[in-house]
Write a protein that binds this DNA or RNA. Structure first.
Ligand SMILES: [Mn+2]
Ligand SMILES: [Mn+2]
Ligand SMILES: [Zn+2]
Ligand SMILES: [Zn+2]
Lengths: 140, 140
DNA sequence: ACCTTATCTGCATGAATTGCTAATTAGCAA
DNA sequence: TTGCTAATTAGCAATTCATGCAGATAAGGT
Protein backbone atom coordinates (compact mmCIF):
# COMPACT_ATOMS: atom_id res chain seq x y z
CA UNK A 1 0.00 0.00 0.00
CA UNK A 2 1.23 3.45 -0.81
CA UNK A 3 1.84 6.20 1.71
CA UNK A 4 -1.01 8.29 3.13
CA UNK A 5 0.20 11.21 1.02
CA UNK A 6 0.19 9.21 -2.19
CA UNK A 7 -3.18 7.71 -1.35
CA UNK A 8 -4.59 11.20 -0.86
CA UNK A 9 -3.64 12.07 -4.41
CA UNK A 10 -4.83 8.74 -5.75
CA UNK A 11 -8.22 9.02 -4.06
CA UNK A 12 -8.79 12.56 -5.34
CA UNK A 13 -7.91 11.64 -8.91
CA UNK A 14 -10.26 8.70 -8.69
CA UNK A 15 -13.08 11.07 -7.79
CA UNK A 16 -13.09 9.92 -4.19
CA UNK A 17 -12.91 12.36 -1.32
CA UNK A 18 -10.27 12.36 1.36
CA UNK A 19 -11.88 12.66 4.76
CA UNK A 20 -10.29 12.71 8.22
CA UNK A 21 -11.66 9.21 8.74
CA UNK A 22 -9.93 7.93 5.62
CA UNK A 23 -6.68 9.71 6.42
CA UNK A 24 -6.66 8.05 9.81
CA UNK A 25 -7.20 4.65 8.26
CA UNK A 26 -4.46 5.33 5.71
CA UNK A 27 -2.09 5.96 8.62
CA UNK A 28 -3.27 2.96 10.62
CA UNK A 29 -2.80 0.66 7.65
CA UNK A 30 0.48 2.01 6.30
CA UNK A 31 3.32 -0.39 7.09
CA UNK A 32 0.90 -2.42 9.21
CA UNK A 33 1.96 -6.06 9.07
CA UNK A 34 -0.49 -7.33 11.69
CA UNK A 35 -3.14 -8.39 9.17
CA UNK A 36 -5.88 -6.63 11.12
CA UNK A 37 -9.58 -7.35 10.94
CA UNK A 38 -12.11 -4.60 10.25
CA UNK A 39 -13.04 -4.74 13.91
CA UNK A 40 -9.51 -4.39 15.24
CA UNK A 41 -8.92 -1.47 12.89
CA UNK A 42 -12.11 0.11 14.13
CA UNK A 43 -10.93 -0.25 17.71
CA UNK A 44 -7.60 1.35 16.90
CA UNK A 45 -9.33 4.13 14.99
CA UNK A 46 -11.82 4.76 17.77
CA UNK A 47 -9.08 5.45 20.30
CA UNK A 48 -7.88 8.29 18.06
CA UNK A 49 -11.21 9.41 16.65
CA UNK A 50 -14.11 8.47 18.92
CA UNK A 51 -17.33 8.06 17.00
CA UNK A 52 -15.87 6.75 13.77
CA UNK A 53 -18.22 4.16 12.41
CA UNK A 54 -17.39 0.53 11.75
CA UNK A 55 -19.32 0.99 8.54
CA UNK A 56 -16.84 3.61 7.42
CA UNK A 57 -13.96 1.28 8.14
CA UNK A 58 -15.49 -1.40 5.94
CA UNK A 59 -16.22 1.18 3.27
CA UNK A 60 -12.68 2.47 3.15
CA UNK A 61 -11.21 -1.01 3.21
CA UNK A 62 -13.38 -1.92 0.25
CA UNK A 63 -12.26 1.18 -1.62
CA UNK A 64 -8.60 0.45 -0.93
CA UNK A 65 -9.02 -3.15 -2.03
CA UNK A 66 -10.72 -2.09 -5.26
CA UNK A 67 -7.83 0.24 -5.97
CA UNK A 68 -5.41 -2.63 -5.40
CA UNK A 69 -3.83 -0.94 -2.42
CA UNK A 70 -4.53 -3.84 -0.12
CA UNK A 71 -5.76 -7.40 -0.27
CA UNK A 72 -8.26 -9.15 1.91
CA UNK A 73 -7.36 -12.61 3.06
CA UNK A 74 -9.25 -15.42 4.71
CA UNK A 75 -7.20 -17.57 7.03
CA UNK A 76 -9.98 -19.34 8.88
CA UNK A 77 -10.22 -16.97 11.82
CA UNK A 78 -13.86 -16.24 11.14
CA UNK A 79 -13.44 -12.73 9.85
CA UNK A 80 -11.62 -11.21 6.92
CA UNK A 81 -8.14 -9.82 7.43
CA UNK A 82 -6.71 -6.93 5.50
CA UNK A 83 -3.18 -6.79 4.24
CA UNK A 84 -1.49 -3.66 2.88
CA UNK A 85 1.29 -5.91 1.65
CA UNK A 86 0.18 -6.72 -1.87
CA UNK A 87 3.39 -8.43 -2.93
CA UNK A 88 3.17 -12.10 -3.86
CA UNK A 89 3.26 -13.87 -0.54
CA UNK A 90 1.47 -16.36 1.68
CA UNK A 91 0.57 -16.67 5.34
CA UNK A 92 1.28 -18.67 8.46
CA UNK A 93 -1.28 -18.65 11.25
CA UNK A 94 -0.34 -19.51 14.81
CA UNK A 95 -2.83 -21.88 16.39
CA UNK A 96 -1.79 -20.54 19.78
CA UNK A 97 -2.13 -16.79 19.56
CA UNK A 98 -3.77 -16.42 16.17
CA UNK A 99 -1.09 -14.11 14.83
CA UNK A 100 -0.63 -14.08 11.08
CA UNK A 101 2.86 -14.01 9.59
CA UNK A 102 4.04 -13.41 6.07
CA UNK A 103 5.63 -16.27 4.17
CA UNK A 104 7.48 -16.03 0.91
CA UNK A 105 7.54 -19.17 -1.17
CA UNK A 106 10.15 -19.88 -3.77
CA UNK A 107 9.75 -22.55 -6.38
CA UNK A 108 6.15 -23.38 -7.16
CA UNK A 109 5.14 -26.89 -6.16
CA UNK A 110 4.37 -29.54 -8.75
CA UNK A 111 0.69 -30.26 -9.16
CA UNK A 112 -1.03 -33.54 -9.86
CA UNK A 113 -4.66 -34.28 -10.55
CA UNK A 114 -5.35 -30.86 -11.96
CA UNK A 115 -5.89 -31.43 -15.64
CA UNK A 116 -7.84 -28.97 -17.69
CA UNK A 117 -7.68 -26.13 -15.19
CA UNK A 118 -5.85 -22.87 -15.71
CA UNK A 119 -4.47 -21.55 -12.44
CA UNK A 120 -4.35 -17.78 -12.06
CA UNK A 121 -3.60 -17.53 -8.37
CA UNK A 122 -2.55 -19.60 -5.38
CA UNK A 123 -2.70 -18.88 -1.70
CA UNK A 124 -1.09 -21.06 0.92
CA UNK A 125 -2.17 -20.95 4.54
CA UNK A 126 0.26 -22.61 6.91
CA UNK A 127 -0.77 -23.52 10.43
CA UNK A 128 1.39 -24.26 13.41
CA UNK A 129 2.87 -22.48 16.39
CA UNK A 130 4.99 -19.35 16.52
CA UNK A 131 8.15 -19.24 18.61
CA UNK A 132 6.51 -17.68 21.64
CA UNK A 133 3.63 -20.15 21.65
CA UNK A 134 5.96 -23.11 21.11
CA UNK A 135 7.92 -21.97 24.16
CA UNK A 136 4.75 -21.74 26.22
CA UNK A 137 3.74 -25.26 25.31
CA UNK A 138 7.21 -26.56 26.13
CA UNK A 139 7.30 -25.06 29.65
CA UNK A 140 3.80 -26.12 30.57
CA UNK B 1 -14.36 -41.27 5.04
CA UNK B 2 -15.27 -44.83 5.76
CA UNK B 3 -18.32 -46.64 4.41
CA UNK B 4 -21.78 -46.14 5.94
CA UNK B 5 -21.51 -49.65 7.42
CA UNK B 6 -18.17 -48.97 9.06
CA UNK B 7 -19.37 -45.61 10.31
CA UNK B 8 -22.38 -47.27 11.90
CA UNK B 9 -20.07 -49.44 13.95
CA UNK B 10 -17.74 -46.54 14.73
CA UNK B 11 -20.57 -44.31 15.91
CA UNK B 12 -22.02 -46.98 18.18
CA UNK B 13 -18.69 -47.76 19.78
CA UNK B 14 -18.16 -44.05 20.37
CA UNK B 15 -21.42 -43.96 22.32
CA UNK B 16 -23.19 -42.15 19.51
CA UNK B 17 -26.48 -43.34 18.13
CA UNK B 18 -27.10 -44.20 14.53
CA UNK B 19 -30.30 -42.58 13.33
CA UNK B 20 -31.95 -42.65 9.91
CA UNK B 21 -30.88 -39.03 9.48
CA UNK B 22 -27.26 -39.92 10.09
CA UNK B 23 -27.36 -42.99 7.90
CA UNK B 24 -28.68 -40.87 5.07
CA UNK B 25 -25.88 -38.36 5.51
CA UNK B 26 -23.33 -41.18 5.64
CA UNK B 27 -24.60 -42.29 2.25
CA UNK B 28 -24.73 -38.80 0.79
CA UNK B 29 -21.16 -38.12 1.85
CA UNK B 30 -19.57 -41.45 0.97
CA UNK B 31 -17.41 -41.08 -2.13
CA UNK B 32 -18.74 -37.54 -2.58
CA UNK B 33 -16.05 -35.44 -4.21
CA UNK B 34 -18.17 -32.33 -4.74
CA UNK B 35 -17.05 -30.60 -1.53
CA UNK B 36 -20.64 -29.81 -0.55
CA UNK B 37 -21.76 -27.11 1.82
CA UNK B 38 -24.01 -27.87 4.77
CA UNK B 39 -26.83 -26.28 2.85
CA UNK B 40 -26.35 -28.29 -0.33
CA UNK B 41 -26.20 -31.47 1.73
CA UNK B 42 -29.38 -30.45 3.47
CA UNK B 43 -31.08 -29.94 0.11
CA UNK B 44 -29.95 -33.35 -1.09
CA UNK B 45 -31.07 -34.92 2.16
CA UNK B 46 -34.44 -33.19 2.08
CA UNK B 47 -35.32 -34.71 -1.28
CA UNK B 48 -34.95 -38.16 0.27
CA UNK B 49 -36.13 -37.40 3.79
CA UNK B 50 -38.42 -34.37 3.88
CA UNK B 51 -38.31 -32.64 7.23
CA UNK B 52 -34.70 -33.35 8.10
CA UNK B 53 -33.32 -30.33 9.87
CA UNK B 54 -30.40 -28.25 8.72
CA UNK B 55 -29.34 -28.28 12.35
CA UNK B 56 -29.04 -32.05 12.23
CA UNK B 57 -26.88 -31.82 9.13
CA UNK B 58 -24.50 -29.46 10.91
CA UNK B 59 -24.51 -31.66 13.99
CA UNK B 60 -23.61 -34.79 12.06
CA UNK B 61 -20.94 -33.01 10.04
CA UNK B 62 -19.39 -31.79 13.27
CA UNK B 63 -19.44 -35.30 14.71
CA UNK B 64 -17.84 -36.75 11.59
CA UNK B 65 -15.17 -34.05 11.59
CA UNK B 66 -14.37 -34.70 15.26
CA UNK B 67 -13.95 -38.37 14.46
CA UNK B 68 -11.59 -37.48 11.63
CA UNK B 69 -13.89 -38.93 9.02
CA UNK B 70 -14.06 -35.69 7.09
CA UNK B 71 -12.44 -32.30 7.00
CA UNK B 72 -14.00 -28.91 6.66
CA UNK B 73 -12.34 -26.52 4.30
CA UNK B 74 -12.66 -22.82 3.65
CA UNK B 75 -12.07 -21.77 0.07
CA UNK B 76 -13.50 -18.29 0.18
CA UNK B 77 -17.01 -19.13 -1.01
CA UNK B 78 -18.61 -17.74 2.11
CA UNK B 79 -19.60 -21.03 3.64
CA UNK B 80 -17.67 -24.03 4.88
CA UNK B 81 -17.28 -27.00 2.60
CA UNK B 82 -17.02 -30.56 3.78
CA UNK B 83 -14.66 -33.11 2.34
CA UNK B 84 -14.83 -36.84 3.03
CA UNK B 85 -11.42 -37.12 1.38
CA UNK B 86 -9.07 -36.77 4.31
CA UNK B 87 -5.92 -37.65 2.43
CA UNK B 88 -3.24 -34.99 2.17
CA UNK B 89 -4.42 -32.79 -0.65
CA UNK B 90 -5.25 -29.25 -1.68
CA UNK B 91 -7.96 -27.51 -3.69
CA UNK B 92 -8.57 -25.57 -6.87
CA UNK B 93 -11.61 -23.34 -7.06
CA UNK B 94 -13.09 -22.28 -10.39
CA UNK B 95 -13.90 -18.59 -10.47
CA UNK B 96 -16.48 -19.31 -13.13
CA UNK B 97 -18.69 -22.05 -11.73
CA UNK B 98 -17.37 -22.27 -8.18
CA UNK B 99 -16.60 -25.96 -8.41
CA UNK B 100 -13.88 -27.26 -6.11
CA UNK B 101 -11.35 -29.76 -7.42
CA UNK B 102 -8.79 -31.85 -5.60
CA UNK B 103 -5.11 -31.11 -6.15
CA UNK B 104 -2.22 -33.25 -5.09
CA UNK B 105 1.03 -31.46 -4.55
CA UNK B 106 4.40 -33.13 -4.66
CA UNK B 107 7.52 -31.53 -3.35
CA UNK B 108 6.88 -29.01 -0.62
CA UNK B 109 7.84 -25.47 -1.58
CA UNK B 110 10.77 -23.72 0.04
CA UNK B 111 9.77 -21.13 2.58
CA UNK B 112 11.39 -17.80 3.34
CA UNK B 113 10.65 -15.29 6.07
CA UNK B 114 9.24 -17.89 8.40
CA UNK B 115 11.81 -18.14 11.16
CA UNK B 116 10.86 -19.43 14.54
CA UNK B 117 7.60 -21.01 13.47
CA UNK B 118 6.86 -24.73 13.45
CA UNK B 119 4.51 -25.65 10.64
CA UNK B 120 2.11 -28.50 11.30
CA UNK B 121 -0.17 -28.11 8.31
CA UNK B 122 -0.47 -26.35 4.98
CA UNK B 123 -3.43 -25.81 2.74
CA UNK B 124 -3.17 -24.37 -0.74
CA UNK B 125 -6.16 -22.85 -2.49
CA UNK B 126 -5.69 -22.36 -6.20
CA UNK B 127 -7.99 -20.13 -8.19
CA UNK B 128 -8.59 -20.05 -11.89
CA UNK B 129 -10.95 -21.50 -14.43
CA UNK B 130 -11.89 -25.08 -15.08
CA UNK B 131 -11.92 -26.46 -18.61
CA UNK B 132 -15.63 -25.91 -19.17
CA UNK B 133 -15.52 -22.33 -17.94
CA UNK B 134 -12.38 -21.55 -19.94
CA UNK B 135 -14.20 -22.77 -23.05
CA UNK B 136 -17.18 -20.57 -22.28
CA UNK B 137 -15.00 -17.51 -21.95
CA UNK B 138 -13.22 -18.32 -25.22
CA UNK B 139 -16.42 -18.65 -27.26
CA UNK B 140 -18.10 -15.54 -25.87
C1' DA C 1 -18.81 31.51 -0.48
C1' DC C 2 -21.59 28.13 -3.08
C1' DC C 3 -23.12 23.96 -4.93
C1' DT C 4 -22.86 19.37 -6.21
C1' DT C 5 -21.90 14.96 -4.92
C1' DA C 6 -19.45 11.72 -2.21
C1' DT C 7 -19.23 10.28 2.48
C1' DC C 8 -20.52 9.37 7.29
C1' DT C 9 -23.22 7.42 10.78
C1' DG C 10 -26.73 4.58 12.60
C1' DC C 11 -29.63 1.19 11.86
C1' DA C 12 -31.79 -2.54 9.32
C1' DT C 13 -30.98 -6.61 6.81
C1' DG C 14 -28.75 -10.79 5.21
C1' DA C 15 -26.07 -15.09 5.40
C1' DA C 16 -23.86 -18.70 7.91
C1' DT C 17 -23.39 -20.99 12.02
C1' DT C 18 -24.15 -22.24 16.86
C1' DG C 19 -27.01 -22.31 21.30
C1' DC C 20 -30.96 -23.98 23.54
C1' DT C 21 -34.88 -27.05 24.84
C1' DA C 22 -38.99 -29.90 24.77
C1' DA C 23 -40.30 -33.95 22.44
C1' DT C 24 -38.70 -38.07 20.43
C1' DT C 25 -36.05 -42.23 19.75
C1' DA C 26 -32.04 -45.50 19.70
C1' DG C 27 -30.32 -49.21 21.84
C1' DC C 28 -29.12 -51.68 25.94
C1' DA C 29 -30.91 -54.49 29.61
C1' DA C 30 -34.31 -56.91 32.16
C1' DT D 1 -40.89 -57.80 24.25
C1' DT D 2 -40.96 -54.15 27.19
C1' DG D 3 -38.99 -50.46 29.66
C1' DC D 4 -35.49 -47.20 30.74
C1' DT D 5 -32.29 -43.58 29.92
C1' DA D 6 -29.31 -40.90 27.57
C1' DA D 7 -28.54 -39.22 22.96
C1' DT D 8 -30.72 -36.99 19.17
C1' DT D 9 -33.93 -34.22 16.55
C1' DA D 10 -36.45 -30.18 15.08
C1' DG D 11 -37.48 -25.69 15.52
C1' DC D 12 -36.39 -21.43 16.80
C1' DA D 13 -33.47 -17.92 19.08
C1' DA D 14 -29.06 -15.85 19.22
C1' DT D 15 -24.57 -14.66 17.41
C1' DT D 16 -21.16 -13.04 14.26
C1' DC D 17 -19.57 -10.84 10.25
C1' DA D 18 -20.65 -8.16 6.46
C1' DT D 19 -23.55 -5.29 3.40
C1' DG D 20 -27.82 -2.35 2.18
C1' DC D 21 -30.05 1.88 2.95
C1' DA D 22 -31.12 6.95 3.88
C1' DG D 23 -30.92 11.34 5.92
C1' DA D 24 -27.54 14.50 7.65
C1' DT D 25 -22.97 16.22 6.70
C1' DA D 26 -18.88 17.79 4.54
C1' DA D 27 -15.21 17.67 0.72
C1' DG D 28 -13.54 20.21 -2.86
C1' DG D 29 -14.05 22.12 -7.49
C1' DT D 30 -16.02 26.52 -9.31
MN1 LIG E 1 0.61 -10.67 4.52
MN1 LIG F 1 -10.88 -32.34 -1.49
ZN1 LIG G 1 1.59 -17.77 18.66
ZN1 LIG H 1 -15.80 -23.73 -13.85
Amino acid sequence: MRSPEELTVAFRSAGLKVTPQRQLLFRLLHDNSSHPTADSLHSAATSVMPGISLRTVYQTLTDLAEMGELQSIEVGSGSLRFDPNVSDHHHAVCDGCGDVHDVYVSKAPVLRGLDDFSVSDAHIVYRGHCGACSALVATK
